[in-house]
Simulated assay, not measured.
Amino acid sequence: MIWPDLLERPRPQPDVEIRYGDNQMQVVDLWLPPGKGPHPTVLMVHGGCWQTEIADRRIMNWIADDLRKRGFAVWNIDYRGVDREGGGYPGTFLDAAAATDALRQHAPKYNLDISRLVATGHSAGGHLALWLAGRHRLPANSPLRSLNPLPIHAVVSLGGLQDLEEAARPPGSGCGLEVIGKLTNGRYADTSVPPLAPLKIEQVLVNGLQDRIIPSSYAETYANKMRAAGDEVRVRMVDRTGHVELIAPDSVAWAAAAEEIERALGR
Rank of each mutant, 00 (worst) to 15 (best):
W3L: 10
P4H: 13
P4I: 14
L6D: 00
R9L: 02
R11P: 04
Q13I: 00
P14E: 11
P14C: 08
I18N: 01
R19Q: 05
Y20A: 02
D22H: 15
Q24R: 15
M25P: 00
W31I: 08
P33F: 06
P34F: 00
P34Q: 08
P34E: 12
K36C: 05
G37V: 03
P38Q: 03
V42C: 09
V45T: 10
V45A: 06
H46I: 11
G48P: 11
T52V: 02
R58H: 12
M60W: 01
M60L: 12
N61W: 03
W62R: 05
G71W: 10
F72T: 10
F72I: 11
A73G: 02
A73C: 06
V74G: 03
N76C: 08
D78I: 01
D83K: 02
D83C: 04
R84N: 10
R84F: 08
E85H: 06
G86P: 07
G88H: 12
Y89R: 03
P90Y: 09
F93M: 04
L94P: 09
D95V: 07
D101A: 07
A107G: 10
A107P: 11
N111A: 15
L112N: 08
I114P: 07
R116G: 11
T120N: 01
G121Q: 09
S123P: 03
A124N: 01
H127A: 02
A129T: 06
L130E: 14
A133D: 06
H136I: 05
R137Q: 14
A140S: 12
N141Q: 15
S142L: 08
P143W: 01
P149V: 00
P149M: 05
L150D: 05
P151M: 04
H153A: 12
A154T: 03
S157F: 07
S157C: 06
S157G: 13
L158A: 10
G160K: 02
G160D: 04
Q162L: 15
D163Y: 04
A167F: 08
A168Q: 09
R169K: 15
P170C: 12
S173K: 07
G174E: 02
C175Y: 08
G176H: 05
E178L: 14
V179C: 04
G181E: 06
N185C: 06
T191N: 05
S192G: 07
P194N: 11
P195M: 10
L199D: 11
L199G: 10
E202M: 01
Q203M: 15
Q203I: 15
V204R: 14
V204W: 12
L205Y: 00
G208D: 13
R212P: 00
I213E: 14
P215A: 05
P215I: 05
S216C: 03
N224S: 13
M226N: 00
A228L: 04
A228N: 09
A229S: 13
V233R: 05
D239F: 11
G242K: 01
H243S: 06
P249D: 01
S251N: 01
V252H: 08
A253Q: 07
W254V: 13
W254N: 10
A256L: 13
E259P: 01
R263V: 00
A264T: 02
L265T: 09
